[in-house]
Design a protein around this nucleic acid. Structure first.
Length: 492
RNA sequence: GGUCGGUUAACCGAGUGGCUAGGUAGCGGUCUGCAAAACCGUUUACGGCGGUUCGAAUCCGCCACCGACCUCCA
């Protein structure tokens, strides 16, 4: 298949044609969660955005290696390079081993992502499992003169030195080092650093610290946060790989530091395309753990949050997120979730209806051009809102065919079926949550039988009895649709 | 304060210098024994003020408001 995929590169601030470094392979690295709490709506966005990218690249026949890490060490609670490790704090509060906390939330994360139809990445590395790789990277950086060891044994990245040699710190996030000088907060306990914005590569653990390692030549400590992504992406994708993704809130300082580390260590850019998804807001404010204004996915699925009017299914959430472009801000509201629910139902219904459409000798619809429009939408930086509008055009076609207002030949009907199935299920990753009954054929026969009897009653114009049957079936969730010459039904 | 981004109809949400995005909700109609569904039609759009242009919601400038990052955050 001809690849015409353009993606917006944060580094160049332009949409660029996606040309992988080693076709037919494509390498993606996405920053995954820090596992110290349940995933909330905000976590669903990058997971779904890059799941879409993963699915589309697979559909385009790329051999995709998709690495999404788990941060289970090194992410500190408070100010830069100070404060307590997030996972360790949770462990202390819950009287558990840090690895127990991490494992618990890893399991939860997998469960929730699975519900959202997010495919597992092909590699899901843990930061704690790559201490040696991180130590080796620190040694390289020290050897090349971009990192320094302090008296206590901690190691920091020397941004000033990096800037002197390469003049490229701030390139990704559009930051200017002089501004950083004047704007960076002076934090307590940073006397060891040469400059306030130098970031930690290796931290020394105090006596209470539970998670500590001794990878030669560093001891009694743990790695800094930015380090893991460089170490693990290099290990699994190489020193230069295709796509690095993550939330836009990670752009600075995390990705900027990552980029600097890699460049310093290997003398070249490690990433060809940087992609950033936008955030989800709630009442116009970023949904975030530290702000405490988040709604967890579990709460959404159960409707158990004061701001929720009802429960929303995982597929409603997925569709809600895909309805906006990944680089746009999305504001949470019951109204838009409700709208997403109705819209998705409409699409899924049409996909059921198309199975029953009978072909004609001719077509009055241009299915091929619709097919092209779908690809054009995705190729334009994964423009899912436009893709969805095209799919609604397909829905319109299907309903119109069902009404007998349009005609379609058997080739076109296959194309249309294939188009809807491919884009809705395979690429957008949506699922029909209602179609999971094992005894469905039996139920169908049962309902068909009762409706056949009702048709006889209707012929006798016994409206009250036929209405009664409709009412009774409706009570158990069956919706009757009387038509001119026959009758249809569906589950509510 | 610095940097960056946004402001589209009731709500959500794309987009282009001139041609109906789409969805949800509402209203009217067709169909139906009735209802539902479906179909058809339809309602106040492009934050404000200037400028460029034959023409701007789309380009430029200024202003207002909102947000993100500058600390951990997806």
């Amino acid at each position: 298949m001809q690849n015409n995929l353009f993606i917006y590169n944060t580094l160049s601030k332009k949409k660029e044609l996606f040309i992988p470094i080693h076709p037919p392979f494509a390498g993606i690295y996405v920053c995954g969660p820090t596992v110290y709490g349940d995933a909330h709506l905000g976590h669903a966005r990058p997971a779904i955005t890059f799941d879409l990218l993963f699915r589309y690249l697979l559909h385009l026949d790329y051999k995709v290696r998709y690495v999404r890490n788990i941060t289970d060490v090194g992410h500190l609670e408070n100010d830069a390079d100070e404060g307590e490790d997030k996972i360790e704090k949770k462990a202390r509060l819950e009287e558990k081993q840090p690895m127990e906390v991490a494992q618990f939330y890893i399991n939860r994360y997998h469960l929730l992502m699975n519900k959202l139809g997010v495919l597992p990445p092909t590699i899901e590395p843990l930061a704690s499992g790559h201490i040696l790789e991180q130590a080796k990277l620190i040694s390289t950086l020290i050897k090349k003169g971009f990192a320094y060891k302090t008296e206590s044994g901690a190691v920091y990245f020397n941004i000033k030195e990096y800037q002197r040699k390469y003049e490229s710190y701030g390139r990704l996030s559009g930051r200017n080092l002089d501004d950083l000088y004047s704007n960076t907060r002076i934090l307590q306990g940073q006397s060891e650093k040469l400059n306030s914005f130098d970031f930690a590569l290796w931290k020394i653990a105090d006596s209470n610290h539970l998670m500590k390692w001794n990878p030669y030549p560093f001891r009694n400590g743990y790695p800094g946060w930015h380090l893991e992504c460089t170490a693990m992406s290099t290990k699994y994708l190489g020193k230069k790989f295709d796509i690095h993704g993550g939330g836009i809130d990670l752009l600075f300082p995390h990705h900027e530091c990552e980029m600097a580390q890699s460049f310093a260590a290997y003398g070249k850019d490690s990433v060809k395309y940087w992609m950033h998804n936008n955030l989800i807001t709630i009442n116009g404010q970023k949904m975030g753990k530290s702000l405490g204004n988040f709604i967890t996915l579990e709460q959404l699925f159960k409707g158990s949050h004061p701001l929720l009017n009802k429960d929303y299914s995982p597929m409603t959430i997925r569709f809600f997120i895909l309805q906006s472009h990944y680089r746009s801000l999305v504001d949470f509201s019951n109204e838009s979730l409700l709208a997403a629910e109705s819209s998705l139902t409409k699409i899924l219904k049409a996909i059921e209806i198309i199975k029953k459409i009978k072909p004609s000798n001719t077509s009055t619809l241009d299915i091929n051009s619709l097919n092209n429009k779908c690809y054009e939408a995705l190729n334009d930086d994964l423009n899912t809102p436009v893709l969805i509008s095209c799919l609604f055009e397909g829905v319109k076609y299907i309903n119109s065919l069902n009404e007998g207002l349009d005609k379609i030949n058997s080739d076109d009907i296959e194309t249309l079926k294939n188009l809807m199935n491919t884009f809705v299920f395979k690429i957008l990753g949506l699922e029909n949550e209602k179609n999971n009954d094992k005894d469905e054929p039996f139920i169908e026969e049962l309902i068909d039988a009762s409706l056949n009897i009702r048709q006889i009653i209707k012929l006798n114009k016994d409206w009250s009895t036929s209405d009664k049957i409709r009412e009774e079936l409706n009570k158990i969730g069956i919706l009757i649709k009387d038509r001119k010459n026959d009758v249809g039904w569906e589950r509510e």
